[in-house]
């Protein structure tokens, strides 16, 4: 098990390989559908500093508000592939060191990981209670009113957030391997 402190350097991220089990600790930001298009409308000055050298987490949490304090109740990953058209530019423009999500991403994001020094961390889909326990504090929220709870940017502080590297900065992808195997198996089954 590898421990990584966020924010993280490009050098450290480039050492990661597919299959590595990692615990992430530090500050990260959630962002999914609306968040990605918003980040590319123009360079968002207010969000850039909190995205620099950390990771964006594809997650639409269930949250709770007590007084002025927000907390995460349930917070598993959402399907990442929907952000495939945007992620490469988000990584490039905001100097992200990684993405957390589920289901993996495509060639464009894999190339961005190589070109700019980032990785794709896979979290287990649906294990929302386990993952929410790693979120120790909500530091702030952006675009809550406009995007709603699931699609807002939640700036969070996490401890030992468990993930697996499934796409690294050396063009390797577990998702590509599984796709390729299952494709040939599908073709065999079609012949039966």
């Amino acid at each position: 098990m590898i421990k990584i402190q966020l924010p993280v350097s490009e050098e450290e991220v480039r050492k990661l390989k597919i299959g590595d089990e990692v615990y992430l600790t530090g500050k990260m930001v959630t962002g999914r559908d609306s968040a990605h298009t918003y980040l590319l409308e123009k360079f968002q000055e207010d969000l850039a500093p909190i995205l620099e050298n950390t990771v964006i987490y594809h997650c639409g949490p269930v949250v709770k508000k007590e007084g002025d304090l927000w907390s995460f109740v349930a917070a598993g990953p959402t399907t990442s592939i929907r952000d495939e058209p945007y992620e490469a530019d988000v990584i490039k423009n905001y100097h992200l060191r990684g993405v957390i999500g589920k289901g993996g991403m495509g060639e464009k994001t894999l190339k961005a990981c190589k070109d700019y020094g980032a990785v794709y961390f896979h979290a287990v889909g649906g294990v929302a209670v386990v993952l929410a326990k790693s979120v120790k504090q909500v530091l702030g929220v952006y675009k809550l009113e406009e995007f709603g709870v699931p699609e807002a940017f939640w700036h969070i502080d996490v401890v030992d957030f468990p993930v697996i590297v499934t796409m690294d900065s050396h063009s390797n992808s577990i998702h590509k391997d599984v796709l390729s195997f299952s494709k040939s198996r599908k073709e065999e089954l079609f012949k039966l």
């Binding site: 639409g60 949490p61 349930a74 598993g76 294990v127 929302a128 209670v129 929410a132």
Partner: peptide, 12 residues
């Protein structure tokens, strides 16, 4: 954990 603590199994 979800059952024990009455929390949503998945955030979606």
């Amino acid at each position: 954990m979800a059952r024990k603590e009455t929390l949503p199994i998945c955030q979606d």
